[in-house]
Simulated assay, not measured.
Amino acid sequence: MDPDALSAISRVPHGGDDDVELVDFSANTNPSRPSGTAFTFESSFAAAARYPADDYVPFRVAASDYVDCDPHDVVPTAGGMAALRLAFGVVLSPGDDVLLPEPSFGEYDREIRLQGGTPVAVAYDEVLATDPAEYAAVVVCNPNNPTGGAYDPDELRDYLADCRDADTVLVADEAFLDFTDHPSLAGEAGVVVCRSLTKMFGLPGLRMGFAVAAGELGERMEAARPTWSLSTPAADVGAFCMREEAFVAETKQRVRTERDRMAGRLSEAFDVFPSDAPFLLLGVDGDVDELLEHARERGFALRDARTFATLDSHVRVAVRRPHENDELVRTLLELR
């Protein structure tokens, strides 16, 4: 981390609302969790009285099965954000240029600046048309947050090959990829894959995730990883959840069905962006503040997407349970 960069760095706004009286459509987390998750968490309490085994073998094996890679390439982290910071920390030097998509997750810009790097933004759907040789690293968010679209897998692998030829590291944020049928880049040379388990399994407060990097890049990630980088409850619950294949399949199907249903109805009043993710970005032809307040008065928290670069009249809504989605859609269409 570059100490000289710290004075100019600020926090980044996120979704998530702490008002328990509201149905939270502002955070893109699963409202359901696998049966047995609470029991697994409680069972880890006794073990939490000791330091975790720093090799995290059961977690690494479960993660390697989850994304189809070598367990030795898995780097346990306290959520996807910790994976991103670790990746930028081992890849960047002060003064490096890094290509990132926009609009996209605001933490990329912040984390790059913390390392003394210079973010260079390009439209999210034009990233794969750029020359990676101009940058120390390139970031892709797949599917992209907040727009929701995923990259074509073949085109993404072709771009990764270009990155390897240019000796440019590709940082692939796959926080929402497990809601799709697209293959992960985990285990490929020249890429750091960052995964969050809190979206699919609905436990953002537990902070569980991992990175995947192969070869010399993976060795650097493992060397820089903080000791005890994942708590015992997070490691145990994460390993348990990644084995729940039926839960993942059911969630993916529910999200697809509900997302398409919501998009069809909301398109009557909003510009709905195509999405492969558990959320929809809506272009608002009207007063965004009025829409946000209207939803809140009726018990719903939405994500004000104007905090994302290049978006000036947008909100993002998560895909939740069918009855909650129905109520939200009715509420949003009331201002039509």
Rank of each mutant, 00 (worst) to 15 (best):
A5L: 08
L6Y: 07
S7E: 13
V12Y: 00
V12A: 06
V12Q: 08
D17P: 00
D17W: 04
D18I: 12
D18Q: 11
D18V: 12
D19E: 11
V23I: 15
A27T: 04
N30P: 00
P31L: 04
S32R: 08
A38Q: 11
S43R: 12
S44E: 01
F45M: 07
A47C: 00
A47K: 05
A49K: 04
A49Y: 01
R50M: 08
Y56L: 00
P58M: 05
F59Q: 00
R60V: 00
R60N: 04
A62S: 09
S64L: 06
Y66T: 02
Y66K: 02
Y66H: 04
D68S: 10
D68K: 01
T77R: 06
A78T: 05
G79R: 04
A87M: 09
V90L: 07
V91H: 00
D96V: 07
L99N: 04
F105V: 13
G106D: 05
Y108W: 12
D109N: 12
D109Y: 05
I112L: 02
R113W: 09
L114Q: 12
T118I: 12
P119H: 05
P119L: 10
V120Q: 08
A121K: 06
Y124F: 13
Y124V: 05
D125R: 02
A129V: 04
A129M: 10
T130M: 14
A133E: 12
V139H: 02
L156H: 01
A161L: 09
D162G: 02
D165E: 14
D167A: 14
D167C: 09
T168F: 11
D181G: 14
D181T: 10
P183T: 07
P183S: 08
E188S: 12
V192L: 07
G205V: 03
R207P: 00
R207I: 03
M208C: 15
M208D: 10
G209N: 03
G209S: 07
A214S: 14
G218Y: 06
R220W: 08
R220A: 15
M221F: 03
A223L: 13
A224T: 06
R225H: 07
P226S: 11
L230E: 01
T232A: 12
A234C: 09
A235Y: 10
E244M: 15
E245G: 08
T251W: 10
Q253I: 13
R254D: 14
V255L: 15
V255P: 03
R259G: 12
R259A: 14
D260A: 15
R261A: 15
L266I: 14
A269K: 09
V272S: 09
F273H: 15
F273G: 06
D276H: 13
G283I: 12
G283Y: 13
D285I: 10
D287L: 13
E290M: 15
E290D: 13
E293T: 14
R298F: 08
R298T: 07
F300E: 00
L302E: 07
R303F: 14
D304S: 07
R306S: 05
R306P: 01
F308K: 03
A309H: 13
V315M: 06
V315I: 11
V317H: 07
R320C: 11
P322L: 01
H323G: 07
E324R: 13
N325Q: 10
D326R: 15
V329H: 01
T331V: 02
L332F: 02
L333H: 02
